[in-house]
Amino acid sequence: MSKSKKVPYLVDRPMSFCPGCGHGIAIRLVAECLEELGQADNIVFPIGVGCSSLLGGGIEADRLHCSHGRAGAVATAIKRCNPNNVVISYQGDGDAYSIGIGETTSAAYRNERFTTIIINNTNYGMTGGQMSNTTLPNQKTNTSVYGRDCSVTGNPIRFPELAADQFNVGYAARGSVHDVPNIRKTKSYIKKAIEMQLSGEGYSVVEVLSPCPTNWKMEPLEAMKHIAEHVTTYFPLGEFVEKEEK
């Protein structure tokens, strides 16, 4: 009896994320795409710091744990030295957008030939739920206890739109994992991003909206509904740029 839907062998081990966390789904989607494209043995993951670091313990592939926010720079080096490897930097929003905004933006600006997967849960999850660059207006976190005041802290950053509008990137999209149809759509985005890297067209970025039940202080189902009702209103889903493949 063959398996029609099996967990990819890359991630077929227990993950150490909180119950209801979206990281597990996103990592499985990446592994599924790599298996389908025949690149499962040709992958290197530069991993950011934060909850995304737990990918290191949950995946059976080459990976490198980078300094905080610098996965974009490390991925650039790996891809330039080993152009035949598929390089996917796996980062959180605090890592890629707050501390590593310089590296992430520079990689997009130079149109480096690697893929970035950014898990956006609108806070710094690993350190206990502090405000990040993507925290929604009026969202309460440990460091914005009265709600985020955008007149003082600035507005949440929308990176895929920025990359699509300002830089000559290959692919930019935003997906979500809050329900089954969106998970399937997000998988197609991730697959296109990896295909864009394989064709050598340029930088590809996929932001994945993910729940953080622990730090949002919600039940897992409530957190999924929160994404559908509130987070997607500020972070619209869809593809923002898709270059023609060579």
């Binding site: 009896m1 029609s4 993950m15």
Partner: peptide
Amino acid sequence: GMCYTICPDGVFEVLGE
């Protein structure tokens, strides 16, 4: 296969075509 798709921890697998 809905359970397979939504599960973050790889609990479910669908066997057979």
